[in-house]
Design a protein around this nucleic acid. Structure first.
Lengths: 214, 214
DNA sequence: GTGATATATGAAGCATCCTTCAGGTTTGGC
DNA sequence: GCCAAACCTGAAGGATGCTTCATATATCAC
């Protein structure tokens, strides 16, 4: 998935009629399926269109090019995860820190596991040009929300250390990905939740300590 | 980067003369550079050959196809990281657990940061077909080594819980990648080392506790 | 110096695929 | 029913790039 010089993220047409919305939905689902069955290298717009049961010309009605199709899916997914984290942060304001951490971790994992097919398939394109930047961009939203929430913790104060927050998200991302790419069986997902909560709680307990000793 | 039905990982020819070894080295370096400058989608064998200062036919003397070129680089890199972890585990046998964890984390980070260009560029191909499986495979070596080392800790006993070990590596991978894709400035790398040690130590301190309470 | 082997070259064959657009079909308001 | 707008079709234009192979050059042992 490469950066295109055109307005890569602008749809050519936005669906108006209901049948068009259905078509765009089918294209999205088909894209995920082809990513999973053929990988990014073998994903062609023709193959996606066929899988979706539409013509390739229709696909280009809604997406100016192949890259914008893929980018749209990635962005949508990242937005959903970020929104889930932000909501959890909002709900957990004022709680003890350990509880805060637990809520956020579980929200993150739940969002990642809502559709394991989507999460898993998008890793195939997320590493190439443009992907990491988008991940970082939406990640900033989540980190900001977490930071704001932590400020309201009645039992701990985090130093103005943004790195610790980044670490938490990076660890969550790494762990989730590891599980997703290994098939994400229910048992694994349960383990992931439990251990990730433990990992982040124990880390945050230490990361918030230095200031408490003053 | 997709799986090819041919013997994708077999070189067509192994360099014998010194000048051939130099050529293969130049091809590897050029591949990294093209991955960084153009991304995976825009990486072509022709472009790599030109960047390396050799003909495209020469490239195909040593690699049967494009995919095997990329796979070879990825595998080499993962092997180096794994070897570094294994060596650290060997050296840290019998030490207190916190020290063990510190040594391993630092070995991992050092291996990842030895050549940030290589580490960073390979993320561009590591997510597509075949990459995650390879990551998992070499990851098993590292996990095995870590498990064996932890068995020799004089002050802690880890339950026969392989998941905790996987978590440590997943967290390290996630955090390292986050820093690498953000440019890996010296300050960031220092922070990464410190915080990653803290993260893994605090987690392992808790993960080894349950058995201690018996 | 000779000859066998190793190594290098790059034009081109050919497969692939992105994208378009002329033409057809469906929807919804009047 | 008519008509404009929305939507759909898929063949094909043309660009791209993987890979090969006939030919040329360099190395090394005798």
């Amino acid at each position: 998935m490469a950066q295109n010089e055109q307005t890569a993220l602008e749809p050519r047409k936005t669906p108006v009629q209901a049948r068009a919305a259905v078509t765009v939905g089918a294209i999205s689902e088909a894209t995920i399926q082809v990513l999973l069955s053929h990988g990014a290298d073998r994903l062609t717009t023709t193959r996606v269109a066929k899988r979706a049961g539409v013509s390739v010309g229709t696909l280009y009605q809604y997406y100016p090019n192949k890259q914008s199709l893929l980018f749209a899916l990635l962005e949508d997914h990242l937005d959903k995860v970020s929104a889930a984290v932000e909501a959890a942060c909002e709900r957990a304001r004022g709680k003890p820190m350990a509880e805060m951490v637990k809520d956020v971790v579980e929200a993150f994992v739940d969002a990642k596991m809502a559709r394991t097919d989507i999460s898993t398939s998008l890793y195939r394109i997320a590493g190439d040009v443009g992907g990491p930047a988008l991940v970082r961009q939406t990640g900033l939203r989540s980190q900001k929300a977490l930071g704001a929430m932590l400020e309201t913790a009645p039992d701990a104060v985090l130093r103005q250390e943004k790195f610790a927050i980044q670490m938490v998200f990076a660890a969550m991302a790494g762990a989730s990905r590891s599980v997703l790419e290994a098939g994400a069986s229910p048992a694994m997902v349960r383990n992931l939740r439990d251990h990730l909560v433990l990992l982040c709680q124990s880390y945050m307990a230490v990361a918030t300590q230095p200031r408490r000793l003053r």
